[in-house]
Design a protein around this nucleic acid. Structure first.
Lengths: 156, 156
DNA sequence: GCAAATTATTTCAAGCTTGAAGTTTCATAA
DNA sequence: TTATGAAACTTCAAGCTTGAAATAATTTGC
């Protein structure tokens, strides 16, 4: 990935390839910047933020497998991140709810407060980092990105 | 990141936030699919592919720091990936070139042949995964992505 | 020349990530 | 019942990733 801008190849399919390369470089750049700021300002990480963001939207809690599906990461991965959030007191596992295999995961009160602060900063960072995109352009881009999502979504 | 489609919040900056979420989900989905195929079909990984792609475009070789800068990953990271590629015989380090701190890294002949095969498959996968995007639309999207890159690029 | 700063790289610990294998629990049905 | 299969998680090894510290080599300023 991240093949570069130098030779500018042409041919059938090259435009899609170039699009993919740009897409990847864009998201990697932004991710890197966000990761850095989360670390510096809040001493946390992107995966923790992702998990907390998902849980913030689900006050009733989520199953581990819900989290895994929603965040597009593996089951085992979520286990580790939630473990760390639990040890930080930001998240709690609630066993017992009929099915003893599952555990409802939710933000603690502290987790919820902490997340609200971080999320506000996060949103303003995005506004800054995507400052060159007008709100109107953002809507159009979002629509275009949406359109080609269906092509592979729900495959695996 | 990867906050979801459910509540659809609004307000200033929300469109940029939504754009970022879509961008991230799109690239993660595609990355996951590519990773899976690289593993299944070629028994390799995305980071290895990235390094080989960079080197393929630089027959004269690249410094470790060039690779790191180009791929947007840390120095230490490149060391590990190149180590593995070297042990697989796909890449070679050539010390001695005036400055004894540096090492020119380049594809071996086998590495070059191997990469050509994988790259062909990779390009056709992209064509397939981005099949919903017309070539024309791809060019426009690429342009838009390009436009907001300058905003943070060259920061760190 | 030579100390100090800079540059290129590696090493390291901690955390993220995956896919596969293992555990526990639940559901089904013979 | 009870086995057998499926589902929800966890564990694990291997690899990726980062930022910081350590090494080594070069360059700069005096």
């Amino acid at each position: 990935m991240v093949a570069g801008p130098l030779p500018a190849p042409s041919g059938p399919g090259k435009d899609r390839l170039r699009l993919w390369v740009r897409l990847l470089r864009a998201s990697r750049s932004i991710e890197a910047e966000l990761r850095e700021r989360l670390r510096q300002e809040f001493n946390t990480t992107l995966p923790r933020f992702d998990v907390m963001a998902a849980l913030y939207r689900a006050p009733e809690g989520m199953l581990m497998s819900d989290l895994s599906r929603f965040l597009l990461v593996s089951n085992g991965n979520v286990t580790g991140i939630v473990d760390r959030l639990v040890s930080e007191g930001l998240v709690a596992r609630a066993r017992r709810n009929g099915d003893r295999r599952t555990s409802m995961v939710r933000l603690t009160e502290e987790g919820s407060k902490t997340f609200a602060v971080i999320a506000a900063a996060h949103e303003s960072w995005i506004g800054e980092l995507l400052g060159n995109v007008s709100e109107d352009e953002a809507r159009r881009l979002t629509g275009m990105l949406n359109s080609f999502r269906s092509n592979w979504e729900g495959r695996e």
